[in-house]
Computed example of a mutant assay.
Amino acid sequence: MSLVERQDMLDQDSAVWSGGEGAVSDYVALLKPRVMSLVIFTAFVGMMMAPGSIHPVLGAVAILCIAIGAGASGALNMWYDADIDEVMSRTKKRPIPAGKITPNEAFAFGMMLSVGSVLTLGLLVNWFAGAFLAFTIFFYVVVYTMWLKRSTPQNIVIGGAAGAFPPMVGWAAVTGGVSLESFALFLIIFMWTPPHFWALALVKNADYTAAKVPMMPVVAGETSTRHQILLYSILLAPVGMAPYFLGFASPIYGGVAAVFGAAFIGFAADLWRKREGDAARKACMNLFKFSILYLFSLFALLLGESLVAGI
């Protein structure tokens, strides 16, 4: 479906949906605040770990712009995926399918925030960081949402790069460029995303099937998805230790990352073994929840070490 045809369809739908009277909370929901919080946190870690310094005011501006850019991506994702969101139980109460905001309003809101965040970051901080933020928004909205999500079961693997870029953008805000260290932060999130997301996709497989989204469990089947979750979890363990191997994290971080990586593999192995009934669902959710703790803990430890080093 072309972008023009899709917009025509959404325009017709908006005539049916009430829309146009969204509250502030509905526009906040368009920003995907839970996803935004992860973006803010990882971008802040990237900024704090970067060599050199940035004025606190400019640092706050950079984080705000990155957060707004992430929110803009979320709004544009909801605009384009309104038809999918209407079908899936997890998303049908979002502002557009719920009739609180029209697709055109969401599109205008997302574009305004995109342009504003990129220009502000470029003008007030540096243009490399601004361009990187623009590329991140483009990658999430165009490459992932408009192309990969509906065309390949590898959508979350390749598209997951968009969620892994924020620490590099935060690093670029300080240094005006990127480095091997910032790429290591990117790689942790990039390798973490497939097992994290596929664990939830196994639970929501019926929704993705109904919405005709080619997620891995829908296309390759649940058994194959479990194999790949275990494989990515095994690969993630040494990647999570990369900051220690590269010399910009302490042995304490290396030890914690090793223990958490082993635990991640343990949860993935449990998911791989349990394939039916409530036990399978519980194993999926256990991995999904632990994966959040894993990422937060590693980045929090990196942040703590950078703060201690700066004292």
Rank of each mutant, 00 (worst) to 15 (best):
P167I: 10
I84H: 08
A279Q: 05
N77I: 01
G110K: 01
W272T: 03
N104S: 15
L236Y: 12
L236D: 05
I63Y: 06
T209V: 15
A184V: 09
A82E: 08
R34H: 14
V308D: 05
G304I: 08
E105Y: 01
V308S: 08
L200C: 09
G310R: 15
L113S: 03
I137W: 00
P166S: 09
M285F: 13
G310F: 15
G277F: 12
D85R: 01
E276K: 12
E222D: 12
S114P: 00
P153Y: 04
V239P: 14
D278N: 04
L271F: 01
L301Y: 10
G99H: 00
K212I: 05
V219S: 11
G20N: 02
P214I: 07
A249S: 14
L31V: 15
A268T: 03
M48D: 14
Y294Q: 05
T145S: 06
A300G: 02
S89L: 15
A98C: 02
I101C: 02
P103E: 04
A237I: 06
A134T: 00
M47P: 11
W17T: 11
L246F: 15
G130T: 02
P97K: 03
H227E: 12
L307D: 08
L246A: 13
P166M: 03
A206L: 12
A67K: 06
V308Y: 12
A268R: 06
M49R: 09
N286V: 06
A280M: 11
K32R: 01
R6F: 07
